[in-house]
Design a protein around this nucleic acid. Structure first.
Lengths: 370, 370
DNA sequence: CCACTTTCGCAACGCTGTTGCCAAAGTGCA
DNA sequence: TGCACTTTGGCAACAGCGTTGCGAAAGTGG
């Protein structure tokens, strides 16, 4: 059962039978999604969830009635009746993911299992005022709904954008260079225009969620090095946002006391050191600094994996992966533990937009705190 | 409902009616515990949990039958029948908390609401071999059982000790200076000797759990500066241990790239810098370094509070609190957010032992992952 | 062809929280 | 003092959850 572990200091919620059903249904749906086109049998679902086979049968019967699950052939017999394999019906629901980047809007229409059905991109000018931006986003969303084979209304729209914001209330806090957006209730304003539920989150969190749902299990940190440096933290399968959606401020971790000044006003931040090294052409040094920050993170949170992404990393990904890995390997040698793996995060241009779609889809599968 | 958020990469667990009942019962017990001697009414319990009043009535009726809850008078009427106030019966259960420190064993017997009923201390020599140490601990536990008014068997024994270990399996990994303890299955060995369940954890985690249960809500970090530097992280009310119980390695966060060497083999660790400054008599500088580490932590995890403890801090607590607070205040001024409060953690000599007792008690109230 | 294994749905069941109702226990006004 | 009203909280009936017992379905293997 689920306790929102994302910083709420408030009272824990009691659970009734409806909550019980939702929980178990979401669990089964998540396993169906993970199994993909191969499908999964009822008995396997029972084993994985700890529920009795009969309970699984009832839950899957409901899912089949609702059109969310369907038969997908049968396995080879092991001496008795062969298991019937079930699979998720991806077309049963769609979500739109929107990535508001500095100067461009990128958006995808994804089906239930996260497969991208359609993409759109459009120029973005945050200085044009709220109305124009909202209209632009609405236009892209409408266009995607037209692209989608099924003309059904999407379950919702997820919006990812840089900068601090309030995930819970859906309110922006500060958008660099555009103070007029401070305190703008993006979620509610957009929901009004679009007529469907809207979820907003930081771009790094959306990216991390996309990775988590896309198969990265356990706990990991997604370090994004582009024009800035940020992180999305996934702990035990859920994105850790903190009560103010302020977690993941990785770029301004100080790793060099009294070091060179950073744009944030502090000195010796990872971001300043890292980007400074890149500017000087010292990618190895940049990777070493990034690795030091990553090692701090690993020591503090005991996470399983480090994933690197962002345009600056992708420009010389081998060097970055190698450099960060070297620091973590050295750390592992000192502590005697197994080294924490470092990998390049899959993603591409629409990675954040896909993650944004998961802001809507993930709750269906019992992930996230919506 | 509760998802173990503590790093398990494995499958989420399905929930049945028994789990539902346990969850809601634990929720109610936790509210009763928090209310203390003042008690809390059924309707208030219903509001706080989101359960219907009737459900709360059924749950509390069971608790009263089991002797865990009892009437505690009634509130003033607001124009109708006055609310009956319920309270936890602390004597309904006890737990032993044991703190294995470098050279001393400190142990407490605590009742259900965490009140210490009896204390014991005994010399400890980890070099004397497993059998002698186990016998020593068993002796202390037996003595405490004698001290307790009720001669009933305690619910369990919580053991806190420094150094890396496996909380889930209860196996020690490395005990500094005593390699013979590597891989020792302390939990099972002690459980066999004592005949009651045993839980083991790092000392910093036990301390943090004690604080969390003792009323520190939300998310916070407990920074312990003694002969070393470690941290206990509480996120959303639960201790974050990580899948390998390796989280909270705060002392070896690097805040000074290529800085002075640390005993761990790395350079520029908070611990080395901090303790070095203390050794030079520069408490202000030590606090500044500690504050930098704390600020990193706040930025990364978006926690609500920093609590300081440990012998070195207590030796000049005002200076440490002031120094750390200054760094965090400066950070808040830069980001424009509210400053993260810094306080001295309550605790004292038996603080960790009390937290260790909570390793056993907390699961009763739906906290922790046992 | 038949015994055996394995899957999986139907039906009855126990237990959960929920709803409808009413007794209990106060306040406050006439 | 009495009566109307408010509020609490238990009893009983209920809907819905996962569980259990059992049997039909659908294979394998001799």
């Amino acid at each position: 059962m689920n306790r929102t572990n994302d910083g709420m200091g408030g009272a824990q919620q009691g659970a009734n039978l409806l909550a019980l059903r939702s929980h178990n249904t979401a669990l089964v749906l998540d396993l169906l999604r993970t199994a993909g086109a191969d499908g999964i049998s009822r008995l396997e679902l029972a084993e994985r969830t700890g529920l009795t086979p009969q309970a699984v049968s009832k839950i899957t019967a409901r899912l089949r009635e609702d059109g969310l699950a369907a038969d997908a052939g049968r396995r080879a017999s092991t001496g008795g009746k062969p298991r019937t394999v079930l699979r998720l019906v991806p077309e049963a629901g769609h979500a739109v993911g929107v990535h508001l980047d500095r100067d461009e809007t990128r958006a995808v229409l994804a089906d239930l299992d996260g497969t991208v059905v359609a993409r759109r991109r459009a120029p973005l000018d945050l200085g044009a005022g709220a109305e124009a931006v909202l209209a632009g986003v609405a236009g892209v969303v409408e266009a995607l709904r037209g692209d989608g084979a099924g003309a059904r209304t999407p379950l919702g729209v997820g919006v990812a954008l840089p900068g601090p914001l309030d995930h819970r209330r859906g309110v922006l806090h500060r958008v660099t260079g555009f103070p007029e957006w401070d305190g703008f209730p993006l979620r509610d304003a957009l929901a009004e225009v679009l007529g469907v539920p809207v979820v907003v989150d930081k771009d790094t969190n959306a990216a991390a969620l996309g990775l988590a749902v896309g198969g990265e299990g356990g706990s990991f940190a997604y370090l994004h090095l582009g024009t800035g440096l940020g992180a999305g933290l996934v702990i035990g399968g859920s994105v850790h946002r903190g009560p103010r959606t302020a977690a993941g401020e990785f770029g301004h971790q100080v790793v060099q006391l009294d070091g060179p000044p950073c744009g944030c006003g502090d000195r010796g931040c990872v971001e300043a050191l890292c980007l400074g090294a890149v500017a000087r052409g010292e990618v190895g040094e940049a990777a070493r600094v990034l690795g030091a920050g990553a090692a701090n993170l690993v020591g503090l949170l005991d996470i399983d994996r480090i994933l690197l992404g962002g345009r600056t990393v992708e420009a010389d990904s081998a060097a970055f992966v190698r450099g960060v890995r070297a620091v973590l390997d050295a750390r592992a040698e000192r502590t005697g533990d197994r080294a924490v793996p470092v990998r390049l995060a899959p993603g591409g241009t629409f990675g954040v937009a896909e993650g944004a779609a998961q802001l809507v889809l993930a709750p269906v599968f019992g992930r996230g705190d919506a």
